[in-house]
Design a protein around this nucleic acid. Structure first.
Length: 512
DNA sequence: TTCCGACAGTGGGGTCGCAAT
DNA sequence: ATTGCGACCCCACTATCGGAA
């Protein structure tokens, strides 16, 4: 199949807003793909490379290459070239990559280049990624969409399912079962503003502490233990403590879901930055483990002794977990009977925060494990802080925000009467707010020459955030975690905005 | 008919590893 | 030795479509 066909279809998909039309376009293309093209065509149309990320990013792609006149590239030729690109490493690799990229892009027409650049940068922006591609695949092969989705969750990727389906038809789906050693996409949680709201929605529920670390899925089959992240990367080699802990458990074969965190000498959780840094360390794991030892803390069991527990109610899965995993290696929790039992839930949240954790996750006791989905039965509740800050500048948006000032630079007042930038945010803006702030900020602009528009510090915004973290980038030595806009405070003057001093006082555990 | 679940998009900060300087 | 880039951890929020209620 020619690359030009993919580029054309991708453009058509981007041009329509109807999901049904996107699915139809994808199905038609998948049907036409030859067997050998399938392992490439499907991931490409889902916006990803079969090789995964290959060390080519935005900067590497920023040098323009003269496009070809005619479309001659085949999908398989592209895959071969990208395969070679992925292999390049060591000194001189940047030059080697650039050369191969020029070869690839030089053979592509303008339309094909646009598609390839999106693909390589990971920003296809056609309004259809994995989920829609899975739907298209179901349509193309006559398989039930729900079963295709389930197979994808169990396989961990669309690719494997696509290959099997197109080779052997809908019966191939039965091959995708939960298997120890094969990671499945983890279940995710929604947010809820309060424990009361969450319990109201779910009724009888477990309230569990939410640890601020790295999500892990741990597979043990006899002596073999594998540890995977939320995106199913294998991080076994970086976490010897987790392997040891899994081997020490009584069960021989299981899949557990949990979080890896680091506790200090007093038993309080270390900051996310410290834990994440440890988990990210690969070159000298032993040294990193001495400085920041980690512990796995589990909250769910997906498989025990060869039994698939995914469809069991959470209460039963947890009973299996409790049989297998002793108390300190399980997440602390309490069970509430429903809205009448709210005090117990609130007390548990307060106690959890005192212990230095992020918040709680409220989980319906009846719900199955919805692999790969943001199940409505898991609701996280975290305290939200707010501040009044001053807009120092704004950046021009991209995509659907093109032509709108989007990303705000936020400042707090300093002792000398100036402002210290604490971070940026683009979150929480409706289209109406984007339009309004674009106009208003341009009135206040002092420099509109670049992609950052500097403004007179006169607009006050109410900003919500999850906490403070240390920063080497910003002048106060701290930055806001997950900052988002709540509203503009036109009733406030900039000299009424919050100060760096009050911010630091509100978070004594963080020192710049 | 209205409501709501699922998706995609639009980006944020930090940290590590590696290549280039 | 330092700097810059890319990958990958954590993530919130809004708009939209289309099926559920």
């Amino acid at each position: 199949m020619l690359l030009s066909r993919l580029a054309r279809v991708s453009q058509e998909i981007a041009a329509t807003s109807a999901r049904s039309r996107k699915i139809a376009l994808l199905a038609e293309l998948f049907r036409d793909a030859e067997a050998d093209d399938v392992p490439v065509v499907i991931p490409y149309l889902a916006g990803r490379l079969p090789q995964g990320r290959i060390g080519v990013g935005w900067k590497t792609l920023s040098r323009p290459v003269a496009p070809a006149e005619r479309a001659t590239l085949t999908v398989r030729a592209v895959d071969t070239l990208i395969g070679r690109l992925a292999e390049v490493s060591g000194p001189g690799s940047q030059a080697g990559r650039t050369l191969l990229l020029e070869e690839l892009l030089g053979a592509a027409t303008e339309d094909e280049q646009r598609f390839l650049l999106g693909l390589l940068s990971g920003e296809i922006r056609q309004g259809a990624l994995d989920a829609v591609a899975a739907e298209g695949l179901a349509r193309a092969t006559g398989a039930p969409p729900a079963e295709v989705r389930r197979a994808v969750m169990l396989a961990g990727s669309l690719q494997a399912v696509a290959g099997a389906l197109l080779a052997d038809g809908p019966d191939a789906l039965e091959r995708f079962r939960l298997t120890v050693g094969h990671p499945v996409l983890p279940m995710l949680a929604h947010s809820a503003p309060s424990v009361a709201g969450a319990v109201e929605k779910l009724g009888a529920a477990a309230v569990e502490e939410k640890l601020d670390g790295i999500r892990v899925q741990v597979h043990r089959d006899g002596d073999t233990v594998r540890v995977h992240t939320r995106t199913l990367d294998d991080i076994t080699d970086r976490l010897p403590e987790v392997t040891a802990a899994a081997r020490a458990l009584r069960g021989e074969r299981f899949i557990l879901d949990g979080e890896v965190v680091s506790f200090d000498e007093e038993g309080r959780p270390r900051s996310f930055q410290e834990t994440a840094g440890r988990v990210g360390s690969r070159t000298d794991v032993a040294a990193a483990a001495r400085k920041v030892p980690v512990s796995p803390v589990f909250f769910d069991a997906l498989s025990v002794d060869g039994r698939d527990l995914l469809d069991l109610p959470f209460a039963e899965r947890h009973a299996e977990l409790a049989r297998l995993v002793p108390e300190p290696m399980r997440v602390r929790r309490t069970v509430v009977s429903g809205p009448d039992d709210l005090d117990a839930a609130e007390d548990f949240l307060a106690e959890t925060l005192r212990r230095g954790h992020e918040g709680v996750v409220v989980k319906g006791l009846d719900a199955p494990y919805s692999a790969g989905r943001r199940g409505a039965s898991w609701l996280k509740v975290k305290p939200v802080h707010t501040l009044d800050l001053v807009v120092l500048a704004a950046e021009w948006g991209s995509g659907r925000r093109t032509g709108r000032l989007s990303n705000l630079h936020l400042g707090a007042r300093t002792a000398d009467g100036g402002f210290a930038m604490l971070g940026k945010t683009f979150k929480g803006m409706t289209d109406a707010v984007l339009a309004w702030q674009t106009e208003r900020l341009r009135e206040l602009a002092v420099d509109e020459s670049g992609y950052v528009v500097t403004v007179r510090p006169e607009l006050v915004v109410e900003i919500a955030y999850d906490g403070l973290q240390r920063s080497t980038r910003y002048p106060a030595g701290v930055t806001l975690r997950f900052a988002r806009l709540v509203r503009y405070r036109e009733d406030k003057r900039p000299d009424e905005a919050d100060t760096v001093e009050t911010l630091l006082a509100a978070h004594p555990e963080v020192r710049p």
